[in-house]
Design a protein around this nucleic acid. Structure first.
Lengths: 185, 185, 185, 185
DNA sequence: AATGAATGAGCTTTCATTCAT
DNA sequence: AATGAATGAAAGCTCATTCAT
């Protein structure tokens, strides 16, 4: 495995910081400092500057979560089981040692008024997640896969906000529990 | 009805701008310019500066939405009916002529890393909404009012994010429809 | 006489620096440092930033030179005498202790590709100078005042460039001498 | 005729850009981009960096104009005729399709405070032009060739500035006309 | 209570240059 | 000879806040 490139290093560092503080709340100086890179090294890899970096970071997290959803649904025997596992995975990925990271989509949506292109990235990531979920719903025999996908997406996003406010994974656990009751019923 | 005070004018202007652009995305100069107030006039009404203004603005929108929820549940004969009406009201309040405003709680949560006190306001508003919903759920005979309240809150918040990404009220309408089906079932 | 305002102080400092180093060759930090003003104090007086400051500085020097031309022509009995005195005045004003300052119009013209509005200021100043000279030419009985004005303007500008290259007022003195011979002829 | 070398290509591209935007107004990145050359390829041809490139570009334009002057005087029967033709040639060379290029000497003079060596190039080019003009003046029987040369140089430089401000070749045409009247008189 | 000026830290971005390959 | 990456200083500008009046 090759050592991660400067570009990837920047993307990962930025991704976390944007989720912690929002797009406008993070300065490039901070990103570079956390990444341990010198000030001038950003515009070689991201000529579009902060916006291009944010786009790359958001897409990167988006793909990461999408893979995680695929893994959660891998061995599921029905959609509800996959939904519960997804919920648990999102919690695991989101609740870090001492803080809860926001959904990257949410962070970008707040910055749209300053960088209109960021809305497209947010939309792309949401659409990818939805079609990923819809695929699993279809495969597992749900009547209306798109409806199921959107419903789960909404639940996860809403729960994410509660988790952010409470600074705890508990809302995700409560959602998982509600989904379990639903399944048994 | 007396003309609204300078203080209230500031609060309302700031509330909309923070929901449009996020806490870090709006400068005090912009708020004062939009409000048509002179540069130095903020710190008389809000000695705590930007943070205190944001707190007041968030609480003000929080209360406004809470009253709106009460009105939505006023004549409801069951919780689902109130939920559907709430959903429609949030859509009406959020989808402006040419844009969709974010939930004020979401805007504040993104700024917490810079202004830790803002998390308390976000938590307060969420708690108020939840207990308001739980009150209606209890009054309308639901088994577990708190669970119903959290569930609806999660659905609304998640839908809000989809509406923000799509820049349309359609997600709220789809949620209302899903809630209707649920009710009939 | 009141002490010069911060705004005027900035204008005078900037005017000299722009003539020394050109528009792109001077930084705002340098202007403020030379003026002894703190970094943030510029945008109150010049919300348009560097460009607005350059415009004000250019117009200020333009007016100063125009007054000087009027003084040079005040007691002149014919146009050639006024022209010679103007030439001497421009030299006196341009050749400082240890350097020759450029014509402010020339400094702005080089920056037009970056700040297109600066061309208008340059044109305005040139037009003012020309009509000022034409007025004196008409008053002193020249046949074609506009032609005389443009001819003198061209001679002064061209001489200015030679003086700049030589770092000396000698080209102005040679021009004055040529104008004298012309007069006697 | 061999294809122009990379070095010459750089010189020509830089010459035009410096005349358009001034020395400080052009970045090396822009020069290389316009020339279609890779980022690192400049310091092989010009170890002295931007300054050395500017020197070469200025000298190159200087020589080009000098040859043009020689051509203008080639078949002239008196100095005034050559002067008029020179004036027309400078106009043709300076007024491009959609813009007027500055005299390279003027562009360099504005950068002297940052790169003192550039004054020498400006002086060299001016001296070459002057002795070129003086040679023709002597050959064509003028009494004081140096005086005639400087006078014409001054007129051309001054006219150049007016043309730059007006963004038109008209000042050159008016100069040519004035020179014609002079000749007939 | 009200206000225009002032303030310096911070912002994103561009700069000319150097270096390893 | 050639080149993409790296580099940190400096660019113009905005920031939330303080102050004198």
């Amino acid at each position: 495995m090759p050592p991660i490139s400067t570009r990837d290093h920047l993307i990962r560092t930025a991704a976390t910081l944007f989720r912690q503080k929002g797009y406008s709340g993070v300065g490039l100086a901070e990103i570079l400092a956390v990444a341990g890179l010198p000030k001038g090294s950003l515009y070689h890899h991201f000529p579009g500057g902060k916006r291009e970096l944010a786009e790359a970071a958001t897409l990167w997290v988006g793909k990461m979560i999408e893979k995680m959803v695929d893994r959660a649904f891998e061995d599921a025997t029905d959609f509800q089981e996959g939904a519960i596992r997804t919920c648990q995975s999102v919690e695991r990925l989101t609740v870090q040692e001492d803080q809860v990271l926001a959904c990257p989509v949410m962070s970008m949506l707040q910055a749209v008024s300053q960088e209109p292109e960021l809305r497209d990235v947010a939309r792309t990531v949401l659409a990818d997640w939805k079609s990923c979920l819809a695929g699993h719903a279809a495969r597992l025999g749900m009547d209306d896969p798109d409806l199921e996908a959107e419903q789960l997406l909404v639940l996860l996003q809403g729960t994410w906000i509660l988790a952010l406010a409470e600074q705890s994974g508990a809302p995700f656990e409560r959602l998982a529990e509600r989904l379990s009751h639903h399944r048994q019923a």
